[in-house]
Design a protein around this nucleic acid. Sequence first.
RNA 1: GGCCCAAUGGUGUAAUUGGCAACACGAUAGAUUCUGGUUCUAUUAUUCCAGGUUCGAGUCCUGGUUGGGCUACCA
Length: 564
Amino acid sequence: MSAPDPAAASSEKLNFIETAIRQDLAKGRFTGVLTRFPPEPNGYLHIGHAKSICLNFSLAEKYGGTCNLRLDDTNPVKEDTEYVDSIMNDIRWLGFDWNNLHYASDYFEQLYQWALQLIRDGKAFVCDLSVDQTRQYRGSVTEPGRNSPYRNRKPDENLDLFQRMRDGEFPDGTRTLRAKIDMGSPNLNLRDPVMYRILHATHHRTGNQWCIYPMYDWAHGQSDSLENISFSICTLEFENHRPLYDWFCENLGIHHPRQIEFARLNMTYTVMSKRKLLQLVTEKHVSGWDDPRMPTIVGLRRRGYTPESIRAFCEDIGVAKFNSTIDMVKLENSIRNHLNAIVERRMAVLDPVKLTITNWPADKTEMLQAINNPEDPAGGTRMVPFDGSLWIEREDFREEAPRKYFRLKKGGAVRLRYGYIIDCYDVVKDDQGNVVEILCHYDPSTHSGQGQSSRKCKGTIHWVSRKHAREVEVRLYDRLFTVEKPEATNEGTFLDCLNPDSLVVSTAFVEPSLLDFPPGTAVQFERQGYFCVDRDTRPGSHVFNRTVGLRDSWGKLEAKGKVD
RNA sequence: GGCCCAAUGGUGUAAUUGGCAACACGAUAGAUUCUGGUUCUAUUAUUCCAGGUUCGAGUCCUGGUUGGGCUACCA
């Protein structure tokens, strides 16, 4: 990759992070852009992580640098290899590849040595205060803290105690190693923060090798430093931690990356906190982490989202320090945008009603040519079987309809996609008065592709031959919550906002060729939406997930009563 | 009652770092269309408030308002 030319890019729009990067590069604070994505392996990655992933990897790539993947595994009681595996899969699926793979746990020994250095320098001490006492001594947001009675222990005693902490002499919670900074600081993070706690727990990588574990603040910046990271990009809640980040690097005299904070992603009609997502899974409100309604990467993937669409979305929403909430329609727009360009079209009837063409020759089947993707001439065509006995969409017929309804109505005409114009002359009803069959004549002179001379009509509807149709399962997904900001409701009650109709399972009649699509394939059901073949598909039992519906301007008009 | 951060259309991000507020999405109106899809055109803003500096302020300064974060031996 060639070196970046800042001048060449001067006219492009930069976000505040890039502005900072260019300044640092220009000043010579750093010679390159080395970033990292540092997830804690305690849950599945979601769309919010995707924003961070795209940011870190794209920035590195743009400036000719590299991006590491680092698993921030400093808390053995919460973390698990299951999550490590899923994180790596998700990043690769998104289309990124890390320069180096690291684990914070790989640095435990180095961290320990650095802790020794701070102790010798009189900048860290072993504290015997209990959890409660530590909290009391810390003071509050408006009151300064008080020095720990153990704060002035001599380095030799601290060294001895710290060694014995490591050796496992003391039970959990009895002692900590703390940095000696300033109990009077208005920034609580600087009030002699805990660096190590005693935790007799088995770590998913280091096993029982350690019984003291570093805290985030002590591990994170030092890991960045060891990897020679230049820009340590994190979310806004770490803003108040930056002085501590800087303090550790300065007092250790080691490579000092620049921490830059940005606003995490929030989206309407979903939740993003790991705790709430975990709760949805464990309480079985969804089928799992990869339930297509989840905002997780695996969920979006199973829903039918493409990596390209997610990357385009992340690019589109930008990055700033303002706490914003992105409208879900923005995400939906990005997947429609991508799928519209690349995906083949098929006809599928989701809510069927019979339509019979009474002047169609008995037993005749005609093969009609249909375009696979009007957006892509290279997509070619396919043949679709047509005859006089069809399924059409129930909502494509009305006995009486408003003026602007230009689908089929009694006494009216409509074009059958890729087929003929038909005229409806009667309907058959059941005892309850429901229409069970629509009777039509077809106009042989209106065969698709006939050209200008043929008869025109406003509406076109999709259909499937009853004889040739295949029955499949469709899973119609909708937003998981009924309110824009479920997280804004009181603690725990976000579950009250769950959308009971977020999944509707149904059957559909589809073109025969749809059965050839392997799991994962995306397709547009014409006039309906984008669907993909679910991994639950088995021979003879096909399952389609609705990724997102097509934009529906008729539906909007009708909902507003502006149809007449 | 402290500290830190932020504020630009309905939503989200820009604005050559002090020089005609732009782009995307949404919405609305229209055109095209054998998908009410796609595509195309048009419309959509007293830059949170009040002062100040300046020839000139979205941008700089002061004060205020509103929102977010900080009081785990979580990250």
